[in-house]
Structures are given as structure tokens and as C-alpha cells.
Design a protein around this nucleic acid. Structure first.
Lengths: 179, 179
DNA sequence: GATATTCTATACTGATTGGTATATATCCTC
DNA sequence: GAGGATATATACCAATCAGTATAGAATATC
């Protein structure tokens, strides 16, 4: 996971994988199928075990709390120096050659699913009166997703945890007035 | 440029380049040196001829106008369907193998330079009273950069021009109160 | 119009890509 | 302890990677 996370799908070679796993090539293929299904397996694991802040955020009690948990959770993850910088779901395959196109599509679908879940949570918040009647949950979900992606890029460029938290703080100012 | 833009540095092969340029391999090397210096040349051209909105934004007369020009300019560029989706400066090499590491570093430095220029413009705005005395230009510049990068990722995932403009609109709400 | 020079085209380099065939060793079951 | 299944290790595969040597063609200079 750390290899794909740091170097992306295309940038990670089978030799990289077998060397750091201490596993021979045929063993890797017997265990995981091929490079692409290994990546998909890794992505599931990443979603389940690493991106834990999203589920936590979606379960928060207010729209503001959802946004805060999401952004701060992202800042905490991306700013964690014990882990690779950035986000596997973004830099795993943002742009790539034809061979990796299915993987790119998978990541696009993965991000879209995250945006959809957030949108639905904010829609609920609107019906519950937790967001103003003139608010746009879809737009808001997209904005929050964009800030998360933006922090991922900042992180990949070397931004610190503190710097990411400042971005979070500014993004949350949207709530200081009606939204 | 469109090849590197769409497929990234690693995802673009020399065969891709020579085929679409209608040029043979030795001609390409005679003209540009090698793949890496070609990419750097392309990046310069991209900055000069494509990312025109940044210079326009930095020359705007107020801090709010700077932010608006920057975000709307990015939305317009990323949403332009006659061009590849996303941003070369982001998806050119966000994560990659060792071979492409110098190119990744170049893009990191390139983004940092953009953030720095924006920060300095906002600092000036603060001294001119165009931003509140308790505002943080560095933080604000990083936030705006993050939103631009986030829109680039959204665009790479297929977001429309309209959707990107909605992100812009929300990000600008920070100005609706003191910032 | 001959000579020098630049440009291009074909073919090739060694290295690396993802992926496997085959053979050997280990382990589990009976 | 014999037999069968599973796992590993070595060696290999064709294809592609970035980059180049060499030879031929076009062009410019004198």
C-alpha cells in the first residue's frame, strides 16, 4: 500500500513490490492475481483502514460537524508523517497511459462515491433544517471534496500538518454565515 | 503539451510523442534534448500560454478580485472542453517512480512559486488595508491554492464547468465576512 | 555543379516492463 | 513414512521503455 501510495500505480513496478514484500514474482501472482487486482485490493484496504475519518464525518450530528470532521480528518491523515504524503485515491492514478486507464477510472469512481455519500448526508441535513433552505447540498459536497483533494496535493508538495489545518479552518468559515 | 497534460509524464511514451508529432525519434532528440527537458519546455509553455489567469489575478485591484479572478480563471480553464481536463502542473507528475522524481520536484517547485506569488500579493493587500489586520495572507494563499488544486482533481474526474464554478462561488464566500 | 552540411529514416541498443513455464522444495494427509 | 497437494525459486517470455548509431536524402554554400 505504501508503495502505490508514494509512487502511484504506474510508478510502482513489480520489482518494487516483490523486493519490499520479500516475495517472489510467482508468489505475488498466486496470491493477488496481477498488478491491477492487487491495486484494487490495496485501495479497498486503504478505504477501510486508512480513510476512517470519512465514515466518522458522515456520522456526525450536524452539517457543520460533518464538514469539520471531514476536513480535519483529512488534514490529520495527510499531515501524518509516519505515512506517505498525499492521498492514494488522488495520486494513485490521476493521469496515466492507456494501460493504467482502468485503474484511473476506478479511482474516479471511488472519489465520486465519496462525493455522493457526502451529498446525501448534506441533503439529509437540509431536510432536517440543519442547513438553510436555500443551500445547495450538491455544491457544498463538491466544495468540501475539492478542499480535501486540494489538501492532498498540498501534502504531496510537502505541506505540514499545521498548514493543512489552516486550510481546514478557512474552509470552515463558510459556516460562519448562512450556507 | 496535450499528451503530457492528459497522460502525465510517466504515462506519455516517446512513441506517443513521435507519433502524434509526426516526427521521428532522432528528430525529437535533436530538437528537444530528451524526454525530461521536453517536459520542462512544455511546462514553461503551459505556464506562459495556458495559465494566463494567474497573472491576470495577481494584477487585480483588490484582494477579493484577486481571489475571484484566480478561482474563476481556474474553473474556466479546467472546464474548457477543448482542452484536456485537469491541470498539467498537478497531474503531470503528482506521484511517480524514481526516474520521474526530478520532474515531480519541478512541479512541486512550480506550484510553490505560484503559492508564493499569491501570498505576496495578499500581503500587500493587507498592508494596503485591503485585508483585515488580523488576516493571515499565507494561510489565505494556501487555501486558495488548495481550492484550485481541488478543482483540478474534480476536473480530472469529469466535473463540468458549471460544477467548478459552484466550487468557486462557495470558496469566495469567505469574503462575505471578515477574512 | 561539386562540396559540405544539415536533416531524417531505419534499425538497433541494453534495460526494464508485466507476466509465466518449469522444476524443486516444503508441508499436510493418510 | 509414502503420496499428493501447495508453495516457492529460478529462469524465461514477448513487448516496451528511453535513447542512439549509422546510413541516406535533402539543402545550402561556394
Amino acid at each position: 500500500m505504501e508503495l502505490f501510495w508514494r509512487k502511484g500505480y504506474e510508478g510502482t513496478s513489480l520489482s518494487d513490490l516483490t523486493e519490499t514484500l520479500g516475495i517472489t514474482r510467482p508468489s505475488l501472482y498466486a496470491a493477488f492475481g496481477n498488478k491491477e487486482v492487487l491495486f484494487r485490493t490495496v485501495l479497498k484496504r486503504y478505504e477501510a483502514n486508512v480513510v476512517t475519518y470519512r465514515r466518522k464525518a458522515l456520522n456526525a450530528h450536524s452539517a457543520y460537524a460533518v464538514a469539520r470532521e471531514l476536513l480535519e480528518g483529512a488534514a490529520n491523515l495527510f499531515g501524518d508523517e509516519s505515512k506517505p504524503a498525499g492521498c492514494l485515491g488522488v495520486q494513485g492514478a490521476l493521469a496515466c497511459g492507456e494501460d493504467a486507464e482502468p485503474v484511473r477510472q476506478e479511482l474516479v469512481a471511488n472519489r465520486s462515491a465519496g462525493e455522493r455519500a457526502l451529498r446525501q448526508r448534506l441533503k439529509r441535513a437540509k431536510t432536517e433544517g440543519d442547513l438553510p433552505a436555500d443551500s445547495n447540498p450538491a455544491s457544498l459536497a463538491r466544495f468540501l471534496s475539492a478542499v480535501v483533494y486540494g489538501m492532498a496535493v498540498l501534502s504531496a508538495g510537502g505541506a505540514s500538518h499545521k498548514e493543512l489545518l489552516q486550510v481546514t479552518e478557512l474552509a470552515l468559515r463558510i459556516w460562519s454565515q448562512e450556507s
